[in-house]
Computed example of a mutant assay.
Amino acid sequence: MQKIIHKAEDRAYRDRGWVRSYFSFSFAEYFNAKMMGFGALRVLNDDTIAPGEGFETHPHDNFEIMTVILSGALKHKDSEGHESVIGKGGVQLISAGSGISHSEFNASESEEVSLLQIWIEPNVRDAESRYQEGNFPTRNSQEKFTLVVAPGNGGNSLTINQEAYVSLASLGVGQEVVYEIKKEGNGVYVFIIDGEVSVEGEKIGRRDAVGLSVTDKVAIGATKEAQLILFEVPM
Score class of each variant (00 low, 15 high):
N186C: 12
V210P: 01
T57L: 13
K203G: 09
S108T: 08
S114E: 15
A164S: 15
V190F: 10
S21V: 03
E202V: 11
S26T: 03
Q92M: 09
S198K: 11
G155L: 08
R207P: 04
V178W: 07
F145A: 07
L230M: 15
E176C: 14
F145S: 08
N156W: 09
G187L: 07
H6F: 13
Y179V: 01
L74Q: 01
T138R: 08
A8S: 15
I49P: 03
E180K: 14
G99E: 14
G195A: 10
E64S: 07
G54E: 11
K182F: 04
R206G: 05
F25W: 08
F145H: 06
K183H: 14
I204E: 03
V113M: 00
N186Y: 05
S213C: 07
A107G: 13
D78L: 09
G87N: 13
G185M: 10
A40T: 03
Q175A: 12
E112R: 11
Q227C: 07
S108I: 05
Y189G: 02
V68S: 07
G37K: 03
T138Y: 05
I100V: 08
E109A: 15
G87V: 01
A96R: 02
I94P: 02
G90I: 05
E112Q: 13
A150M: 01
L74V: 08
I120E: 02
D126L: 10
V148G: 02
G152M: 10
F38R: 00
A96K: 06
I69F: 01
